[in-house]
């Protein structure tokens, strides 16, 4: 449990801009994710949360510092064993639910019987069995996000990165999806990094919550929740949950104000 899975060492991202000074979006960030832990990142909008995720997933190159997964430096390409679920609906509309879920397996050349077995497992795990032959256009937003999660899970990633995966869903669906996510986390034993703008979601789901500052994004503090491993969404009614969520908000309030002032100034310039 305490073994390091992902290590960020001085990770910094600066975007070059035409005819403007470079934009310092992120870092330097030092962070260690322990194997099998559930880590959430919260922060004011525009603080570089998604930039952080892109850097860990190898979707973008960092300006300075290094990301190591299992001791291997991530260098501009997605390392094996990493799965990402995005906020935008990424289900492919031209494929049925089962073909969507099988997509990654087929591209990796896994044999047909194995694909069928793993897709059937993922379908039942995500409650999608009755919709295997449906197209995403026939499903609700929450169901489509489940398809994307299933598509990630069949590849059996050891590290799952989620970028505001429930951002587009209503509150009730979000809480229930949170329960499902906790279930998956326990079943798979994967390390999870969840990026979210919902403080309650972060406080309810994770072992630790990293609170980021306004741009350039750095960790202000990492809050430990000390929930039991078999927690679920009912903890939102406990006093400890209230304390954790209010601690996060206290930390974030000043930063969110700063971020809003930044944006207001950028608009008046």
């Amino acid at each position: 449990m305490s073994e390091a899975h992902v290590v960020l060492d001085g990770v910094t991202r600066v975007f070059a801009r035409a005819a403007q000074e470079p934009l310092h979006a992120l870092g330097p960030i030092d962070l260690t994710l322990k194997r099998g832990e559930f880590f959430a990142v919260v922060g004011p909008s525009g603080c570089g949360k998604s930039t952080l995720l892109d850097a860990i997933a190898g979707l973008s190159v960092v300006t300075d510092g290094v990301v190591r997964i299992d001791g291997q430096a991530v260098a501009g390409s997605v390392p094996p064993g990493v799965g990402v679920v995005f906020q935008d609906d990424a289900s492919f509309p031209w494929l049925t639910v089962e073909d969507n879920i099988a997509f990654g397996l087929r591209r990796q050349g896994v044999d047909g019987a194995e694909v069928a077995r793993r897709v059937a497992d993922a379908l039942s795990l995500m409650g999608l069995t009755d919709f295997a032959r449906a197209y995403p256009a026939q499903l609700s937003g929450g169901m489509r996000q489940r398809v994307c999660i299933a598509r990630t899970l069949v590849l059996q990633p050891r590290l799952i990165l989620l970028d505001e995966p429930f951002g587009a869903l209503d509150q009730q669906t979000r809480l229930l999806m949170g329960d499902e996510l906790l279930n998956l986390w326990r079943k798979t034993g994967a390390t999870i990094l969840l990026i979210t703008h919902a403080l309650d979601e972060a406080a309810m789901l994770s072992d630790r919550v990293g609170v980021m500052s306004a741009r350039p994004g750095r960790f202000l503090e990492i809050v430990e929740t000390r929930w039991p491993r078999d927690r679920d969404s009912t903890i939102v009614s406990s006093p400890e949950f209230g304390a954790a969520a209010s601690r996060l908000w206290t930390l974030l309030r000043a930063e969110s104000l700063k971020a809003m002032q930044h944006q207001a100034r950028a608009q008046t310039v």
């Binding site: 995005f86 997509f103 990654g104 591209r107 990796q108 598509r151």
Partner: peptide, 28 residues
Amino acid sequence: KPVYIKSARVMRVSGWPLFRTVLLPATL
């Protein structure tokens, strides 16, 4: 949608397979 290409990259699909299995059906 950029997220289609990102998702494909995360599933380690690029080059000709990316064109054939994502870009082509997305634009068809």
